[in-house]
Design a protein around this nucleic acid. Structure first.
Lengths: 329, 329
DNA sequence: CATCGGGGTTGGATCGTTCAAGGTGGCGAG
DNA sequence: CTCGCCACCTTGAACGATCCAACCCCGATG
C-alpha cells in the first residue's frame, strides 16, 4: 500500500521546506527558477496531489460548486438540464472546480440546503436554474454575499446579480421570420399564460416580428399550461377559427408536439415549430429552437469563477439560440 | 457577520467539554441522556454543523460519492441518466452523502480521474453506469479496494463486484407475453448486434417467451445498431417478408420509434413496443418497458453505503421493470 | 477499606495545508 | 565597515474535528 504523499514528502524529496513547495503551487513567481523545477519534478515523481480537505480547512474554499438537480418534470425537458449539467461539469473541471449535486423540494428546503452546504462543505458557489419573480433564494444568497449565478435572467431587476441566459425572444423571432419567408401570414403562437418571464419573452419575439411584418397577431395568440394535450386543444381551436392559421410557433416542444397531433390530418400542411430542441423534437423531426446549453454552462462557470478569483467579468450574458430546421417547418 | 460556530462553541454553550460534544455526535450511547439533550439543544440553538473538511482530514472520509455524467448520446436516452441521477442524489442525501459529478472521455481518462478524486477529494465511493465486458475501470477500482457499485451487471463474472441492475429479459418477456395474449404470433424482435450484455439479455427474454409459446422466432430476429433510421429499415424488412410480422418488440425506444414510422401506413395495424420509457415514448404514446430508475439508484446508494459503513448487504440486486401500456401495443 | 465502573473532563497529538512571521546571505549605498 | 534591502527560503502556528490516554468524582460492591 503506497503511503500517502503529502507536501512534506515532496519537500523532503526536493530538499526544500514545506512552504517552498506550497509556494511553487500557489505563487510560483516568488520561487527561483531552479528550485521550482526541482520541486515540480519531485511532485511528478511522487505523484503528489494537494489534499483538498486540508487546503479547504485553511482557506475556507472547497473548489466545489453546487447545482440543483430537479425532478424530471414531464420528462420532455429533462434532457435540457442533463445537457446543461454536462457542460457545467466539463467547464468546471477545466477551471479546477467540481460540481456537487443537491436536490430540494421548495424554496425553503433549498435555502436550508444552501446553509448546510455552506457551513458543512464550504461550498464556493451556486448555479441556480430557473429563477422566478422575487426569488427568495437569490435574495438569501445575495444577502450573505455567497457567489452565485443564475441560468435565466432575474425578470424584476436585471442588474441584481450575475446571470446567463438565452435570448428566447430572438429564438421565436427567428422561427417566425422563417415562416414569414416561407410565405405564411397567419402564424399563431401557443404559449404559456402571461406572467412567466421566460414565456413572455418568447411570446414577445413572435409578436414583434409579426408587427414588423405589418401583421396583427392578437387573434392568433393562445395561452395555456404546458403539455401535449393542451397543445393539441389549442391548435384545434386555431384550426377551427374563421381564418385558420397556416403555421404556429410554440413556446415548448411539448406544446408543439400536441399541435402536431392536431395538424396530422389537415388538408393543407400546417407548419409547426417548437422550443428547446429536445430529443423528442429530433426524434420526430420537429423544427425547434435550440439553446446553446454547453456555451451557457461554460459562461456560468466563467462568471462564477470570475467572482471567486476576483476577476471582474461582465456579469450579464445573453446568448442567441439557433433554429434547427427539420421537416415540420 | 456570524462568527463560525465550532465544536468548542457548542461545548461552551452546553457547559461540557469538546470531547463530550464529539461523543454526542459520534457515539451517543455513551453519553448520559440529560447531557446529550443539553448538547443537542446547544447544537440546534447555535446552528452548529460539523465542518466536513476537518472531519475528513482526520477520518479520511468525505461523505462524497462520485458519478460520471456522460455526454448525451443521441439524446433519447439522456433522460434515463437524468432520472437515475436524481434518485441517486435524493437517496444519498438521506444517507448523509452527497453526489459529485465528473466527466471523462475514455477509460484511461476516467481512471486518471478516479485517482485524482481519490487522492485530492478523498472520495468515498463510485457509482459506475454502463459497464462493458472486461471493464478496466472496475478492475482498477477493485484492485485498490475502492468501494463502488455498478448500475448494470458485469457480464463476465456476476460475482466480481456489487451491482444493481434491471432485468431486461423480464421486460421483453412481459412485452412479448402481452402481445401473445393479444393474439399475435409473428412477433419480431429488433435488437442490437450480438455481443452487448444488455442487448443479449433483452433478446433472451423475447426468445424464451416465444419458445415457451411454442413459436420459433429465428426468422423474426433482427440485429442492428441503435437509431431511428435503422429501426425503420429493419421494420420495413420485416413487413416485406413472406409472412409479415404483426408485432415487434424493440430493444430501445429509438429503434421502436423507427419501427413506428415504418408501420404508419400499413393496412393492418402493427403493434410496437420499445424499451426505457423515455420521454419520447410518453410523448408519442409508445408502449415501452420502464426501468425503475429511482429504485435502482436507491439500491446503488444502499450497496455503497453498506460497504462504507461495514453493513453487509446482498451485493447483487436485480430489479423488475414494468411494461407501460400506451396505444402502440 | 479497596476496587470497580459509569460518566465526565483535560490535555495533547494528529490530519495536510497555508499564513504570518522570521531568518540568511549577498550586494550596493552611505 | 556597517546598515538596509532584497530575493529566497525556513519555522512556527493555526484551521476544526477526532482520537487517545490519563485522570477525576462518586456511588455501589465485595
Amino acid at each position: 500500500m503506497a503511503e500517502k504523499v503529502t507536501i512534506a514528502t515532496v519537500a523532503r524529496h526536493a530538499q526544500v521546506s514545506r512552504q517552498t513547495v506550497s509556494n511553487v503551487l500557489n505563487a510560483p513567481h516568488i520561487v527561483r527558477e531552479e528550485t521550482r523545477r526541482r520541486v515540480q519534478e519531485a511532485i511528478a515523481v511522487l505523484g503528489y496531489r494537494a489534499n483538498q480537505a486540508a487546503r479547504q480547512m485553511r482557506t475556507g474554499r472547497s473548489q466545489l460548486i453546487a447545482v440543483r438537480i430537479e425532478p424530471t418534470q414531464d420528462g420532455i425537458n429533462g434532457s435540457v438540464l442533463d445537457r446543461f449539467l454536462h457542460g457545467l461539469t466539463e467547464t468546471a473541471e477545466a477551471a479546477g472546480y467540481r460540481v456537487l449535486l443537491y436536490s430540494a423540494t421548495g424554496d425553503d428546503h433549498e435555502i436550508a440546503t444552501f446553509d448546510d452546504l455552506l457551513s458543512a462543505y464550504d461550498l464556493d458557489g451556486f448555479v441556480l436554474t430557473g429563477t422566478d419573480h422575487g426569488d427568495p433564494r437569490t435574495a438569501w444568497l445575495a444577502e450573505r454575499g455567497v457567489p452565485f449565478v443564475t441560468f435565466g435572467r432575474p425578470w424584476d431587476d436585471p442588474e441584481s446579480h450575475p446571470w446567463v441566459d438565452v435570448d428566447g425572444a430572438d429564438g421565436t423571432a427567428q422561427a417566425t421570420r422563417r415562416l414569414l419567408e416561407a410565405g405564411h401570414r397567419r402564424i399563431a403562437f401557443i404559449g404559456w399564460p402571461e406572467g412567466s418571464g421566460v414565456g413572455d419573452d418568447r411570446r414577445a419575439g413572435w409578436r414583434t416580428t409579426m408587427a414588423a411584418a405589418g401583421l396583427d397577431g392578437a387573434a392568433l395568440n393562445r395561452e395555456t399550461e404546458d403539455g401535449i394535450t393542451h397543445g393539441e386543444r389549442e391548435m384545434r381551436a386555431l384550426l377551427a377559427a374563421d381564418e385558420p392559421s397556416t403555421a404556429v410557433v410554440c413556446v415548448s416542444d411539448s406544446l408543439a408536439l400536441g399541435a402536431l397531433r392536431a395538424v396530422r390530418d389537415t388538408a393543407v400542411p400546417v407548419a409547426v415549430t417548437g422550443f428547446d430542441d429536445t430529443p423528442v423534437a429530433a426524434a420526430i423531426g420537429l423544427t425547434s429552437v435550440s439553446q446553446p446549453l454547453a456555451a451557457a454552462a461554460a459562461r456560468c462557470v466563467e462568471l462564477l469563477t470570475g467572482q471567486l478569483d476576483g476577476q471582474p467579468t461582465d456579469p450579464h450574458v445573453l446568448l442567441c439560440p439557433t433554429l434547427v430546421l427539420r421537416h415540420t417547418a
